[in-house]
Amino acid sequence: MSKRDYYEVLGLGKDAGEREIKKAYKRLAMKYHPDRTKGDKDSEDKFKEVKEAYEVLSDAQKKAAYDQFGHAGVDPNRGGHGGAQDFGDIFGDVFGDIFGGGGRRGGGAQRPQRGADLRYNMELTLEEAVKGISKEIKIPALVHCEQCNGSGAKPGTKATTCGTCHGQGQVQMRQGFFAVQQACPTCRGKGKVIKDPCSKCHGEGRYEKTKTLSVKIPAGVDTGDRIRLSGEGEAGDSGAQAGDLYVQVHVKEHDIFVRDGSNLYCEVPIGFVEAALGGEIEVPTLDGRVKLKIPEETQTGRMFRMRGKGVKSVRGGAVGDLVCKVYVETPIKLSDKQKSLLKEFNETMQGSKGNKHKPKEEGFFDGVKKFFDDLTK
């Protein structure tokens, strides 16, 4: 039976680059690998076909020969460039990070692994975020065992060379055509075994403990900011470097202010008389109350900017502003006398020609009249 085109096998075009070829092989090899398909003859044949195509197309010299002469250019029986490369080499190069092993090129026992990074979600009030604060937090994590100094062996003893892998940390498994290297099941890839484990960490070199840390939150942080505490993550394996702790900041909603970058926004209610005649009111800031002058004839929605009353960002720059948006409150629960006075006042508003006291209302109804006039034309 004639062989299928290698590009067709990998589902690629003739112009596929090295990255595309490797990606396609990785996807198909994962799909048809014998460890996943468990004795499916058709999948095993497809895996061999995919592997063969990748061996050729991933090698620049073989690929050039194949592109020029087809299968004949890489047929080892015709002096081409095809050859039996050990499966472990290819599989390790592409999948070493997935299956925890690697081809023979990796060699030797696994290196001690750096400790895992940890994340802690910290909720702050707006005041705490703006001014900065120090907080104590409790973190459950794997810590370095001080009794055995991270070796995992009982004090006075030490680990010995693994008899299964002879210190290599890897063993080779062969199943007919396939040869795959994997971590030694006896020493779990370390190359050494502990006969007398430490009583505190039970041979792991680490144990779980709840750590209490003091975290200094700098002034000006905002939701989404991260604070990195180097070396405060989990302890590394066999004395390796510890991971880091990342404190993720979330600022709670405030009852008065809304923050946008370095600026603060708030809504301020004012009375009907203050809006009409003007006056002075007190408005809140994060540093206390300040006076805000309201000019006469102020309308709902008008914005007032108070320079330097916002936030200084943790990233630097000038202090932001406080922007106050006023809205005019309609009086409620009026007495009979108050209602009578308002009616009398309203009559005085209608006395002059036009509606000069309510310019927006006049403009609105003029627009409504024009709208309906245009509809009837």
Rank of each mutant, 00 (worst) to 15 (best):
G13N: 02
S199C: 03
L277G: 01
G288S: 05
G176N: 10
R27G: 07
T161P: 06
R19T: 06
A53Y: 00
Q248G: 01
H357V: 14
T37E: 10
E20R: 04
E128L: 04
V326F: 05
H33S: 04
G243Q: 03
Y7W: 03
R104H: 06
V268E: 13
T125P: 11
A60P: 01
H202A: 15
D93E: 12
A29W: 02
Q113E: 12
G191A: 13
G169F: 00
L334T: 14
T161A: 04
F47C: 10
E208R: 15
G320P: 00
K333Y: 10
K62I: 08
P359F: 05
R307E: 11
K63R: 09
E136C: 00
V319D: 04
V273D: 10
V328T: 09
Y54C: 05
V171L: 11
E52S: 00
G39M: 07
P284E: 10
S58G: 04
C198L: 12
I98E: 09
E297F: 08
G320M: 01
Q170K: 11
R289Q: 15
V311R: 02
Y265M: 02
K31S: 07
K356A: 15
R206C: 00
D287G: 12
G239N: 15
L245P: 06
L341A: 14
K154E: 11
E267P: 03
V323A: 02
E282P: 03
V268M: 13
G103F: 07
A242M: 04
G271N: 12
T300F: 00
V314A: 05
A65Q: 12
D97P: 14
